[in-house]
Nucleic acid binder design. Sequence first.
DNA 1: CGCGGGCGTGATAACGTTTTCTGCATGACC
DNA 2: GGTCATGCAGAAAACGTTATCACGCCCGCG
Lengths: 348, 348
Amino acid sequence: MTSALGSPGEAARALTIRDVARHAGVSISTVSRVMNGKRVRPELEQAVQQVLSDLNFRPSAVARSMVNGTTQTVGVLVEDISSAYYAELIKGIEGVLEKTGHHPLFKSSHWNVEFEEEALRVFLDHNVDAIIVVGGLLPEARLAALVGRLPLVIVGRSGLSRVSLSLGAALLTLDQRGGAALATRHLIELGHRQIVHLCGRPTQEDALARLQGYRDAMAAHGLEVRPEWVLEGDFLEVVAYRAMLGLVERKLPFTAVFAANDQMAFGANLALHRKGLRVPDDVSLIGFDDLPVSAYMVPPLTTVRQPAQQLGEAAARAAHDLMNHTSPVLAQLQLNLVLRESTRALRR
Amino acid sequence: MTSALGSPGEAARALTIRDVARHAGVSISTVSRVMNGKRVRPELEQAVQQVLSDLNFRPSAVARSMVNGTTQTVGVLVEDISSAYYAELIKGIEGVLEKTGHHPLFKSSHWNVEFEEEALRVFLDHNVDAIIVVGGLLPEARLAALVGRLPLVIVGRSGLSRVSLSLGAALLTLDQRGGAALATRHLIELGHRQIVHLCGRPTQEDALARLQGYRDAMAAHGLEVRPEWVLEGDFLEVVAYRAMLGLVERKLPFTAVFAANDQMAFGANLALHRKGLRVPDDVSLIGFDDLPVSAYMVPPLTTVRQPAQQLGEAAARAAHDLMNHTSPVLAQLQLNLVLRESTRALRR
DNA sequence: CGCGGGCGTGATAACGTTTTCTGCATGACC
DNA sequence: GGTCATGCAGAAAACGTTATCACGCCCGCG
């Protein structure tokens, strides 16, 4: 182990393929060929490999990208990396991309279309090999313009027919509206009639779909939705908390709450607790998402499970397929009810 | 014959600076100069700017990196992107890097030193301008080898004196041991004597430090730590949940629990609830981290706040300073107790 | 024995920028 | 009015790889 080739301790300029070639007494072409597994005379191959490992040489990914036009990078755009739901989705994406040798480049758009545009620019500038867009507000035309330039996977946007038609894009959605109806129906079947809905951020497509699903289920059972039952929200705990406090204080009668996501359910749960209302004895509470923590809420939260991680995995796989020019097989993912302890039959 | 959908396989080759030069009737040098704000005759500048915006031209970041050796990228290595605590930290990093025009490249090491090594390799291969390492198990020598090659920021690793000594690296830590002592002392001051500690993952430096802090505080008050009070864990809810169930079933007396992180506190909270023990009336419970959800636990969780987001911000700022060759000013961040409703004075 | 065809190797041209160098004006100063 | 500085544009050299091309060698076959 005598690694005494460099003088000790100064601005160690990074090695290049030339250095390897010089040490091995071959041309740079040969070094390149060895690294890429092309045919080379065995003894030369051996020599080069030796130098490669002696010098601990690693070729510059930038230079590689320059010549073969691919970066092994995938741009991933979500609303907020650190939000619990997206974190799960990201975990899925990360997991499969790790295996395919691609590197995700995550960007948060912060629910702001300007940031989304900017992220797209950055992705394009950096020549990512594919883009995964999760939700967001980008107009269809903007997305369509991407198709053909590079593989595009769109997650959680409905009504983007044109884009999906052109090959080179994949569309993944979950039936948010149906899931919301599922949740609401569950409450109805438990005997609840006065069901409050805590809405998500109104600029989010998902929030609207869930509100609609709630209305669907109510209508399907001939139940009126009183305006004071639909409470504005934004997917965050604090707003749900305040809204729920307000509702109780106004003494409006209700027996169940459907929150547009689990985070809001947490807020509602605490508010109800503060007001001395027991969940589920006095009020049934159902959420949406099934975050990892939701199972540990007190009481454990009944909710509609979104397979976020699997969705991320499917998105990454689709991106991978698209990059390989094979048409992606899109797993058909389902929302389903997970029954825990925050809902119960209405006492008559 | 140009069809509306474009010819198949005819992916619009990206524009280059040459195209701009040709359209503007100037040399590529001039285009480059205009883009970089160097002096150019006004009418030429005007013409080039016009073409630039007409063509909506964006220079290739890869080619740029190639020549000026910088990528505007920062490698960020954490245990798990999607874990709640790291998510917050990442949010901080992302926030300030967004402003400095750098792009974070996040990698999860999954508590596996092999993955850590791999991530480092990827960062180096891609020629990131700086690296931020959060926790992890990389040996000091490995980290030291990085110093000098590029700016390095290490978060949450204590006892890395040599590295910190050499300029070009920044070290950020929080006093985990002190924080744990803070939590434990709080319980002691409330009159508790039989205090259980739910340990974090034993391979994690932080977990050990917190255990030590717990012992410190107990010892400082002349309290014995009975072996059956320190419960093995791994920072996850489920293990804490099971451990707590087991403890109660064994009918060992205790009046308070200090969980090594909030997630474990959630698990413990549910277990206690299941066993009919009320928090805080029967058992006081304190966590560590102060995750965003913790304020919405029922009851709201008393915990030791880690300023994760600010820590991330500080790390990113340090990286930025290091890249600018200015010595980083390291904000001195503190852990502090946030009193909520999961602890109360022991009834005598 | 000559010649064509693999095969393996080195030289070299890309890739798309920025930077350096060169050249040509123009203006200033003696 | 000549010489020198100065300003600005274009040509060309870099950056570190991979792909293409051309060449030399050995082998087999006629």
